[in-house]
Amino acid sequence: MKTDDALHKELLSAWEETYKKGQLTLWIFLSLKEGPKYVSGLQESIERFSKGTIHAEEQSLYRTLRKYYHLKMVDFSAGKGHKGPDRKYYHLTPLGASLLQSFVERNIQLFFEEPLKELLLNDSITAKK
């Protein structure tokens, strides 16, 4: 039998694994909302914003950005590289920005409103043994 602590850890990890699927877009868009970024910079800000809970592989980011570029959600401009060739600095297009705005209004903002806000911030959870 697993101890409560071990079970908690295992369940949390499984929940987070499922929860993170589909999260990359939001983190990319939020990072780009902060300002134009090249891929490594984007990777760093995603880790910083998510406090290390989200790690995106560089290859995966390139692939995703190419898709978003094709769908006109992001665009890029060439900028000076750090002692190297020019880099692509990605930014949100008006379509990408309005998409993020709508997504946040419909899916994120409700967490900042009562009663969800109260439930999320209140750590005295009532649990029956």
């Binding site: 699927k21 589909g22 990359l24 995966s60 898709k67 094709h70 769908l71």
Partner: peptide
């Protein structure tokens, strides 16, 4: 041209 389920990750 991209399948809807493959757009957002």
């Amino acid at each position: 041209g991209i399948h809807k389920t493959n757009i957002f990750e």
